[in-house]
């Protein structure tokens, strides 16, 4: 087992463990912090799998922006989560059953597909290559995505204008 493989399994284990801890936390701040670890691990994994630019973006956008946004909302709302029913039986039992089937199917598919047992090569897609590739082949999609982000921005702003409370009063 090479060093890369070791790092892969280590980070993989870290990601799964921290995600598992994150999704079982009652306190949402804790959950977000644990998930942060998971995303950092993902970024490491990206780097390992030859995508340095994506790793950097992942840290900036995912671990940075998105998780901070989560944290921000959680702290802003300051909700009392102690009353939450954590894992109702009617939800987790079917989820567990189907999850088990899903895992079994997934493992079987992976094992039965030829080519998946071949070790991945060590190749790095440099940021320059990646950028050129994206802007040569996917420039239209990039523009559309930027438009999507703009729409999301406008939507978030208009939702966050605080009309909710007024309407509640109106209806009450």
């Amino acid at each position: 087992m090479s060093l890369y493989a070791f790092i892969f399994y280590l980070t993989g284990g870290l990601i799964v463990a921290s995600t598992a801890i994150a999704i079982t936390r009652r306190h949402m701040v804790h959950a977000v912090i644990y998930l942060l670890f998971s995303f950092f691990g993902t970024a490491v994994l990206f780097y390992l799998l030859g995508a340095p630019l994506l790793a950097a973006l992942w840290v900036i956008i995912y671990a940075g922006a998105i998780m901070v946004l989560f944290l921000f909302i959680v702290m802003m709302i300051r909700t009392d989560t102690t009353s939450e029913v954590m894992f109702p039986l009617s939800q987790w039992l079917p989820a567990a059953i189907f999850g088990a089937i899903y895992l079994a199917v997934g493992v079987a598919v992976v094992l039965m597909t030829p080519g998946t047992e071949v070790a991945l090569p060590m190749v790095v897609g440099s940021p320059r290559e990646f950028a050129l590739y994206v802007f040569q082949n996917h420039w239209l999609s990039i523009e559309i995505v930027s438009l999507l982000l703009l729409v999301a921005l406008v939507g978030a702003v208009s939702l966050g204008r605080g009309r909710g409370e007024e309407q509640t009063e109106d209806e009450a």
Partner: peptide, 17 residues
């Protein structure tokens, strides 16, 4: 969501086996 997950799982069962 659970239902759509179940459907997805069952579809995968159907398609892969």
């Amino acid at each position: 969501l659970l239902a759509s997950f179940a459907v997805m799982v069952l579809l995968s069962l159907y398609f892969f086996f």
